[in-house]
Design a protein around this nucleic acid. Structure first.
Length: 273
DNA sequence: GACGCATGTCGAG
DNA sequence: TCGACCTGCGTCT
């Protein structure tokens, strides 16, 4: 689940469920006993997301920093909370419900200075009102690194992961191997605008759908299709299957230890407008 | 029950 | 560039 839209959803859930009232915090698994003890009984003042980082600020200015990483997930529900099962690192309980955190990359308490340091190294987040896409453009337009790598670099853009990376490049018709410095300014503007739109949709719907209405199987006269990650996408994890637009086989390769997917026809050099 | 896999990040070499 | 981290799930035995 965890790309930036997931974190923003989680921030909203935490606001709705816990803000303004004392929470109960425990670590059923035991690996966060110390931190849970320090949060237990505090009042949640604010919950926000920056990229894939979830920040929960309590009334004593401690900030709980959660990063789901690749395995982490939340289980949320109304009261009463069931007996915890599996490896629950942190359980927050309030009058409106509970939140169980399993398998996070990071679950730690930070002071104000540490929070600032964390945020200072993150690029603009398309889901945040204060995001400055110019900061990302300055990095991209000077870089020899490929767009595929730049879009996964959280110090360039904070929030997109492997799915949004693949889908946004497809939708813009950009070859993933194109160096940042060869990207045209209007292409970047289009990519950023698309990230803003797609990720906001992701927050609203709770999954990643990127296929335009005119390319859905129904519109193309093909049988209905369900992608195995739970959303409708053009290329992500569709290697060997026909491109939804041109029917060329979708390509895949390992790049910086991650799977990259693209259509060599729709995303050839010069394929974009 | 073993194994492989994943929407992520960091640090060693 | 590669392994470690870390958890649940699907697939294969």
């Amino acid at each position: 689940m965890p790309e930036g839209h997931t974190t923003h959803r989680l921030a909203a859930v935490h606001r709705d469920m816990f803000r303004g009232r004392p929470v109960t915090a425990t670590s059923p698994q035991g690996r966060f006993d110390d931190g849970a003890g320090r949060v237990d009984g505090r009042v949640l003042d604010e919950a926000e997301a920056h990229g894939k980082h979830l920040l929960l600020r309590f009334d004593d200015d401690q900030v709980l920093h959660v990063h789901l990483g690749i395995y982490g997930r939340y289980a949320l529900g109304p009261p009463p909370a069931p007996a915890p099962t599996g490896a629950v690192r942190l359980r927050l309980t309030g009058s409106a419900g509970y939140a169980d955190l399993r398998g996070p990359n990071a679950c730690e308490l930070l002071g104000p200075g540490e929070v600032k340091a964390l945020r200072d190294r993150l690029g603009p987040d398309p889901l945040r009102a204060d995001a400055d896409p110019e900061a990302a453009w300055r990095r991209i337009s000077r870089s020899r690194t490929s767009m595929a790598v730049l879009l996964m670099d959280q110090t360039v853009v904070a929030g997109p992961g492997n799915i949004y990376r693949a889908e946004v490049l497809f939708r813009a018709g950009i070859d993933p191997s194109l160096p940042g410095r060869e990207l045209a300014r209007d292409q970047w503007d289009a990519v950023w605008a698309d990230l803003v739109t797609l990720m906001a949709d992701g927050v609203r719907v709770g999954r990643i759908d990127t296929v335009r209405p005119e390319h859905t199987p129904e519109a193309m006269g093909r049988p209905p299709r369900v992608d195995d990650h739970g959303g409708e996408v053009y290329v992500y994890r569709r290697a060997g299957q026909p491109c939804l637009v041109c029917s060329t086989e979708v390509m895949t390769r390992q790049l910086a230890a991650r799977n990259l997917f693209w259509c060599s026809t729709c995303q050839g050099r010069g394929a974009s407008s």
